[in-house]
Amino acid sequence: MADDDITRPDPEDDAELAFEGALRPKSLTEFVGQTKVRGQLELLLRAAALQGRTPDHVLLAGPPGLGKTTLAMIVAHEGNRPLRMSSGPAIQHAGDLAAVLSSLVPGEVLFIDEIHRMARSAEEMLYLAMEDFRIDIMVGKGAGATSIPLELAPFTLVGATTRSGLLPNPLRDRFGFTAHLEFYDEQELEEVLRRAASLLDIDIDREALAEIAGRCRGTPRIANRLLRRVRDYALVHGKPADLETVRAALDLYDVDSLGLDRLDRAVVETILKRFGGGPVGLSTLAVSVGEEADTIESVVEPFLVRVGLVTRTPRGRIATPEAWQHFGMTRHTDGLFDA
């Protein structure tokens, strides 16, 4: 076999990458779900276009996987404006932010993901930049230090955060529009999956789509990921992407009928079996399942609370009657249980 046969990219791989990129909507009309937010954004962008100005700064708040990055790209695309992407953890000094802001071209959209994780000094610099499109650069130290004002090109800041409560009020108040993204219902997720299946050229029936939609935790990112795993399973086993194949594939990847994964089940089963349904403290629970407390609190618990399997109390976490039922266990008054 010649060397160029080994190193030459496979055209099918390029096509697959193109399909993956196509899953992300390019416009508000293609974006599924978040009807209220889409209407508000459309009004904001159209008003800015009619007035010939840059759109107001936008804050997108909500859990991961609901489309914040996609909406930021759409804001740039709808206004035919360039897009600059960064993240809060990457901006740890005021100088980092100054370098980004000073290089923006007029009308550019600056997207900062996880904006609540920016350094405090950078946040304070952003206040003036958002309001007056200028920043003050400090030169020198001590009594001889001077402030040099630097004018910025008008820009639109799109900030995304999963923890809006961690944003300081002065920063939050400088956004002209704040969008709160909600979890998707199953009908919306079926539409997301139907669009993705069409783009990925997957022949899948409605029952199979509904099964995936019911297991993806109200999150389009998870829906698209599960759809790709079903496609892989059907391809490897030479089966059609029907309901039976979907159930077999998702069982293989430890995704149950409610969308619980391995870690979710480990947390709930620990509360049920080791602590008789609770209450149990967060740190004790984290040690019992061998996971960081922050991961339990920020990644696992929100979904378990939302689907009604776990409640938070001042004394600790408690499993609900629905949790006992879902795991096929019965709680007794003495704290023991029957599997």
Rank of each mutant, 00 (worst) to 15 (best):
L189H: 05
S103V: 07
V280A: 13
D201S: 09
P321G: 08
R117L: 05
L167Q: 06
V230D: 07
I6C: 06
E207P: 00
T245V: 09
H180G: 13
E123K: 12
G21R: 15
E301H: 13
P314W: 06
R306T: 09
L50K: 08
F177S: 14
N169G: 12
H326Y: 02
L260N: 04
R215S: 09
A210Q: 12
I212G: 01
A94L: 10
E30F: 07
A18R: 14
I204Y: 04
E151Y: 10
T311A: 13
E108D: 09
I318R: 10
F111C: 12
L263V: 14
E42W: 02
G277E: 03
V280N: 07
A241P: 01
L110N: 02
A15C: 03
H116A: 07
P25Y: 06
L110P: 03
I212V: 12
R274Q: 14
E123T: 12
V246M: 03
A49Y: 04
V100K: 03
R274A: 14
L181S: 01
T270G: 01
E190W: 00
N80H: 13
V299H: 12
H180L: 14
T333G: 14
A129W: 04
L209C: 08
L171I: 13
G281R: 10
V230Q: 07
P154L: 06
P149T: 11
T161S: 00
S86F: 01
